[in-house]
């Protein structure tokens, strides 16, 4: 059986796994970007309260392996609170938290380190606070953050594979189940690799386009 044959034969199962992976990504990316940016901005403007919280949580989530958090939320936490939560939601929550605090810390640092002189130059030129945010701060921050944010989101896509370990029927788990049926690991994992390439390629192309279009070397001669 070739890779193509496997993809054709099990296309329904792959599509189902793909749908679950994409649903996971949708939740993780949306919450991560919206809440992460909000948290980062708030954290930069309130460094002693939200800023510390963001920093601490970001450190915790980067220090503790995602898999440990995922397993902890899936097994002990649910046992302690005597609840049973659908693994999809547990995975969504875990990975969203990782993404929110990852994006939040990235944004907090970028806002905190934003060169004050550009704001001062805008003020003496009579720009309003709104103009300063929309025409100076946001465009410069956007350009600074694009590459890091894109890398983070691709990393979160890869992290969805962990969800297979708590029985979420995402693409990796589907591939493992097909492999256990036909035992063609080379072809199946090659097909999986092509899948990730196909999904990551547009993201990477978009990142490259945005980087080319909006980010430049700002350093002056």
């Amino acid at each position: 059986m070739t890779v193509l044959n496997i993809l054709i034969t099990y296309h329904m199962a792959f599509l189902q796994g793909l749908r679950v992976t994409m649903e996971l990504c949708l939740v993780i990316w949306t919450t991560g970007i919206i809440l992460g940016i909000t948290l980062g901005v708030v954290g930069a403007n309130a460094p002693h309260s939200w800023g510390r919280f963001t920093r601490a949580m970001s450190f915790a989530f980067s220090a503790i392996p995602t898999l440990v958090v995922l397993f902890w939320l899936h097994y002990p936490a649910q046992a302690v609170f005597n609840v049973v939560i659908d693994p999809f939601y547990t995975a969504s929550l875990t990975l969203s938290l990782v993404n929110i605090f990852g994006v939040g810390e990235m944004v907090r640092q970028a806002v905190r380190d934003f060169p004050r002189q550009y704001i001062i130059a805008g003020r003496v030129c009579g720009l309003s606070s709104r103009d300063l945010v929309t025409h100076i701060q946001l465009p410069i921050l956007f350009r600074q953050l694009i590459p890091g944010l894109m890398v983070q989101q691709v990393g979160m896509l890869h992290a969805t594979l962990f969800a297979s370990l708590i029985s979420v029927e995402e693409i990796f788990r589907v591939s493992q189940r097909i492999n256990s049926t036909i035992y063609r690991p080379v072809e199946i994992y090659t097909a999986l690799a092509f899948f990730f390439l196909a999904v990551c390629l547009p993201i990477n192309l978009a990142a490259a386009y945005l980087k080319r279009r909006y980010t430049r070397d700002f350093s002056e001669r």
């Binding site: 550009y118 003496v124 410069i140």
Partner: peptide, 27 residues
């Protein structure tokens, strides 16, 4: 009372994401 009172700094502080023309025209 900015920009009735305005300044050109020694370090200039031109906005790096805008062309020089846009730097002049934005404000």
């Amino acid at each position: 009372p900015w920009p009735k009172l305005t300044t050109v700094f020694q370090q200039l502080f031109l906005w790096p994401h805008l062309t020089l023309r846009e730097n002049i025209l934005l404000p």
